[in-house]
Amino acid sequence: MDAKTASVAINLDGLLVGSGSDSWVLSTMKEHGAALVNMLWRILGREEDVCDAYQDTFLQLANCGEKLKPINAKAYIFKTASNTAISIIRRRQMDERFKKNLAVDIALKSGEEVENDFDAGQVREELRKYMAELPEMLRDVLVMHDLGGMQYEQVAGILGLTSGTVRVYRFKAVQLLALWMGKKNE
């Protein structure tokens, strides 16, 4: 390790979390990590984004410390991961909007036609984009049930709702998405 790398490592170590016994963070990671990665993958669809959101989630969990450890760690990490993923999608959308505008400008200047093919990848990206715009409660229900693979009862337990309400919220979320996607295609 050269002097420069060593100093970076020392600076990073200053930011490293954890005091006392934080082994519960690792056990939570072991227990729910696979399901969380699956959910993040479905929301984000990019490996580097999944790793970032996963890291942020466990960093926040570790920051709670032993004393402020959440009662329901699963609920905490899924909710945190979902919020982090949505923030990443929003940031990504801003970048893409900028790039798209740039591409359209260039295409218009060079007289080329802008392609607008319909494919599965496009539907997925569209859905991800609109999901980020859903009201928080509807989005949480849709993400946890449809992308996190949780039962209605589990989602209800995490969000503190009844399973009937969760079903209604899920239907409302689908209706809204259908409306927005329909409008876009008109």
């Binding site: 930011l15 490293l16 979390v17 954890g18 005091s19 934080d22 963070v25 690792l26 990671m29 990590g33 990665v37 993040l40 490996e47 999944v50 790793c51 970032d52 996963y54 890291q55 989630t57 466990f58 960093l59 570790a62």
Partner: peptide
């Protein structure tokens, strides 16, 4: 990959 990245910021 995700675990490696997350574990990397722990103490």
């Amino acid at each position: 990959k995700a675990n490696t990245k997350a574990v990397g910021v722990l103490k």
